[in-house]
C-alpha cells in the first residue's frame, strides 16, 4: 500500500478534507502532519512516505516542504516554488505576465500613493491566511474602488511591517470563470462575480472546455510549478484576464473532486 503524508493546517483539516481523507484512507496509508501540533526538527529527515500532499500555506508548512524537497527524494504536491509564488501575489503577477498570460495591470504602492489606473481593486499582498475575501466597494466620481478587507488589515501591521497596497486594475466582467487544474485535467466553471452575488455557489455552473483558458491554465501551472490549482479569470471585450491563482484549491466544489485529487496523488506516488 502506498504511503501518503498530508501536510495541513487545522483549518483545512477541520473544514475541507473529510471526504477526501475518508476516500484516501481506503486506498493508502495516510499520515497527517498538522502545522499547529507538529515540531519541525531539521535533523529528523527519515520519512517513509511515497508522496507528500500539502493543504495549507503557513510558515511551518513552507519550511516542511523545503525540507522534504532539499533533503529527501520524496515528491511534494504542491512544490515550495508553487506554494511560495501562489501566496505572493505581486511575484506571481510578475511571473505570469512574463509568461504571456494576460493579467490585469497591477502596481505595488506605498499607502497614500495613487495607482496608475482609475478603477481598481486593492488585494492582499501575501495571501497566507485562511480568510475569506471581504470586499469593501466605494464609488467616487464614477470611478470604482474596491478593497479587500484583508488587504487593509495587512497594512501598518507590526509584523510584517509595511505600508504597501497591491492595486489591480478592475476588470468589469459578466462572469467569473473558475478553472481547476488537477495534473493534466482541467475543469471549467463559471459564476456571477462575487461582487454582484456573494453566494458564489448559487450561480456556479459547469461550462464546456474553453481552449484559450485551458492554454493559460497549463502555462500558469508550468511556470509556477503547480500540479493542483484553481484560477479565477474575468472577461472584458473578448479578452480573458487571470485575476487570482490558488495553491490550495477547494476541490469539494468539483463533482467527485475528492476522488479525482486522491486518485491523482496515488498515481504520482511511486513506490
Amino acid at each position: 500500500m502506498k504511503k501518503i503524508g498530508i501536510i495541513i493546517d487545522k483549518y483545512h483539516l477541520k473544514y475541507k478534507v473529510s471526504e477526501f481523507l475518508k476516500y484516501l484512507n481506503s486506498k493508502a496509508d495516510v499520515k497527517i502532519y498538522t502545522e499547529e501540533t507538529f515540531l519541525l526538527d531539521s535533523s529528523k529527515i527519515e520519512f517513509d512516505e511515497n508522496l507528500f500532499f500539502v493543504k495549507g500555506k503557513g510558515d511551518l508548512i513552507l519550511a516542511f516542504i523545503k525540507l522534504i524537497e532539499d533533503l529527501t527524494n520524496i515528491p511534494v504536491i504542491n512544490s515550495y516554488r508553487g506554494t511560495w509564488l501562489a501566496i505572493n501575489r505581486f511575484l506571481n503577477s510578475v511571473i505570469l505576465r512574463g509568461a504571456g498570460i494576460p493579467i490585469p495591470d497591477f502596481s505595488l504602492n506605498p499607502k497614500g500613493s495613487i495607482p496608475p489606473f482609475e478603477d481598481y481593486i486593492i488585494k492582499n499582498i501575501i495571501d497566507q491566511k485562511n480568510w475569506k475575501f471581504k470586499p469593501i466597494v466605494h464609488k467616487e466620481n464614477g470611478r470604482l474602488k474596491v478593497a479587500d478587507e484583508r488587504a487593509l488589515n495587512e497594512v501598518d501591521k507590526v509584523d510584517p511591517k509595511y505600508n504597501y497596497l497591491y492595486y489591480q486594475k478592475f476588470i468589469k466582467s459578466k462572469w467569473e470563470f473558475k478553472i481547476y487544474g488537477i495534473g493534466d485535467e482541467i475543469y471549467f466553471y463559471k459564476q456571477i462575480p462575487i461582487l454582484i452575488n456573494p453566494n458564489k455557489i448559487e450561480s456556479r455552473r459547469k461550462i464546456d472546455r474553453e481552449p484559450e483558458l485551458e492554454e493559460y491554465c497549463y502555462k500558469a501551472m508550468e511556470v509556477m510549478d503547480l500540479k493542483l490549482t484553481s484560477m479565477d479569470f474575468l472577461k472584458s471585450k473578448e479578452q480573458f484576464f487571470l485575476t487570482d491563482i490558488n495553491c490550495t484549491p477547494n476541490f469539494n466544489y468539483i463533482k467527485d473532486g475528492h476522488k479525482l485529487v486522491a486518485d491523482f496523488l496515488l498515481k504520482q506516488a511511486k513506490i
Binding site: L39, L40, D41, S42, S43, D59, A63, D70
Partner: peptide
C-alpha cells in the same frame, strides 16, 4: 537547507508553535 546541501555545518533548526 542550502548550507546543508553544500556541506557546511549549520545549527539544526526547529519550527513550531509555543505549545
Amino acid at each position: 537547507f542550502l548550507m546543508k546541501r553544500i556541506g557546511l555545518f549549520t545549527p539544526e533548526i526547529y519550527l513550531g508553535t509555543v505549545d
